[in-house]
Amino acid sequence: MQTEKTKFENLEKWEGMLAKCIRCGYCYEHCPMFKYTRWESDAPRAKNILAHGLLTGEVELTPAVAEKSFNCFFCKRCEAACSSGVKITDIMLDLRRDLVKLGYNGPGTTSITDRSCARCLQCVRACPHDAREFIDGEGIVVDPVKCKSCGICVEICPIEAITIPLSFGTDKVELEQRAVEFLHSRESAKVIMYACNWSYHPDIQNSRLPESELEEKEYEILVNLCGGRIDQNLLLTPFLNQAWGVLVGVCPDGECNHDGNEAAKKRVKRMKETLENLDINPDRIHLVQIPAGDKQLCQAEIDTFMEKINQMGPIR
């Protein structure tokens, strides 16, 4: 149904590129949001389809449509997989620019700060994308175009006043829960791996294996999207739940979009010290750096770590 057309000044220039998207759907399997919900409307292709619909007037601009456009973790795996070279995130950023002008601010997966904020401004300094500023009378204001949903602000806030409203399974409470569930689910469970989506893990992506295949499963890969989100609790929880080890996968030096790998390195180092103080072998926690999309290296690193961990045995 044709509705009254809204003007999208920034999005307009992408009309030709949106026609070039052949809608093959090769972007899905890489998208952490699609993998979490398995709804096509959460996949990158749907964002292109909606952008096209907004331009033609076939899609009415509603708060739900706007919110959808603020959902993305900017791992850009979709762009790497795109068979037509469509600049999916650039298109979405231009749509966001238009939406902000039209009075929509997300939040979707962009971060928000609640009223309990103590105005310490640590998040403003820590944001690698310059997306947070302090405005007198308003408090901390987030620019939803600049925010890349890396979650570094969430981790750094000392009073937990920052949240990402739509976490798609990357919220640390949920990650901790899933880690605990796995570790208690079977006798063979030994290791939790936190992987950023850039490292793109080698596990089966969108299907489920038969239970008989999973009986001996020794490790679980949990996608936390950016190493910058790793905090001490996330690292410690598995050890409090019988884990033999924890593996953290982040980007190589200089390749993380958010410098989250550097933050992760510090936290892993600190956790190693904690383990040492407890007389536990610090090698039970290990950080690996994996270039974007290198599934083979990721699997090789997991295999090496599992071998070491199996030699060490359980923590006594």
């Binding site: 052949i22 809608r23 709804w39 389809i49 909606l50 619909g53 899609v59 739900a64 449509v65 959808k68």
Partner: peptide, 27 residues
């Protein structure tokens, strides 16, 4: 189940030249 027009529109396409929205998506 999905009934929001935005979901219906997104599910109206495949890799063909066509577009037509369903009335509801059930999984």
């Amino acid at each position: 189940i999905k009934t929001d027009p935005l979901d219906l529109y997104a599910y109206g396409a495949d890799a063909s030249v066509y577009h037509a929205s369903p009335w509801v998506i059930v999984r």
